[in-house]
Simulated assay, not measured.
Amino acid sequence: MATVASDRKLDDAQLEPVVITTMRRRHLRNVLRIEEKTSTTPWSLGLFLAEVRREEREYLVALSGSQVVGFAGLLYVVGEGHITTVAVDPEMQGGRIGTRLMLVLTRRAIAHGSDSITLEVRASNAPALALYRRFGFAPAGVRKDYYKDPTEDALVLWAHDVDTPAYADRLSAIEMQLPTPLVLDDSANTDASNGDTTERDAL
């Protein structure tokens, strides 16, 4: 799983409005740039292409203006969501980008029918752990030596009962604490449903 760094390094006023939208092919060059900065074992272009094309997957990017400043991914398995990756550009941390991605991702998982969500995170990644705790995730196990370069255990976190009114209230409270409104652009989903394969989406 890619690194989530602190949301508080860059002052909120320094960011253009952040928009969360579906990851498309045209985003992947910048996604790879962030992946190289934040992961010691970065995913390849081929892996990202395969993931975004698969069914039962949800991949998002955070855009500040036209710049990709973060991304996140989720896969669905029989009533559960598994967050596969969350990353924020280290040079653009601020404006609660990780929080915005998590808000949209968890709500998408719930809308898909998930009642629980899980993820893995490096045991030493304190900023990521703090973010996930806000979303109700708690440790449920350890995967020994899961991460490489350096070798480190992964904590397996779960958030249960995410389809309840209490969890919806938790998400609403998190959203209310954002310094600027959460903006979601679903036009990419509309394009995809219409078979959009225009040249602007080419790598």
Rank of each mutant, 00 (worst) to 15 (best):
S66Y: 13
P165E: 00
E51G: 06
V4D: 02
A5D: 10
P165D: 00
P42S: 15
D153R: 03
D185Q: 07
L155Q: 03
T190G: 07
D185Y: 11
E16W: 07
A192P: 02
V88F: 05
E80W: 04
A173F: 01
P42A: 13
E16S: 06
D185L: 05
G65S: 11
S187K: 03
S124W: 15
S44W: 13
Q93L: 04
S64Q: 11
K37P: 01
D115M: 01
P139Q: 09
S172E: 11
Y59N: 03
T3S: 14
G73E: 10
D169T: 04
A138D: 07
Q67I: 09
G46T: 12
A126L: 15
L182C: 04
Q177G: 04
A50L: 12
T38V: 15
A138C: 05
S187A: 08
A188T: 05
T85W: 05
E175Q: 12
V68N: 05
Q93H: 04
S193Q: 10
D191Q: 11
L74Q: 09
A87E: 08
T180N: 07
T180R: 13
E36C: 05
R108D: 05
V31F: 07
I117L: 13
L60T: 01
Y147N: 00
I117A: 08
G95R: 01
A138Y: 12
P42F: 13
E55L: 14
V156R: 02
G136I: 00
L15F: 10
T21G: 08
R108W: 08
A140T: 11
A130D: 13
V162P: 00
N30I: 03
R24I: 06
D186G: 06
D145M: 09
L60V: 04
S193N: 13
H27P: 07
A128K: 02
A154Y: 11
M102H: 04
S116T: 05
Q177Y: 04
K144P: 01
L32M: 12
S172G: 12
R100C: 05
A126Y: 08
T151W: 07
H160I: 00
F48W: 15
P150H: 08
F71T: 02
E51C: 14
A72P: 02
D161S: 03
R53Y: 13
M92I: 03
M1W: 06
F71W: 11
M92L: 14
L63A: 09
D149M: 11
Y146F: 14
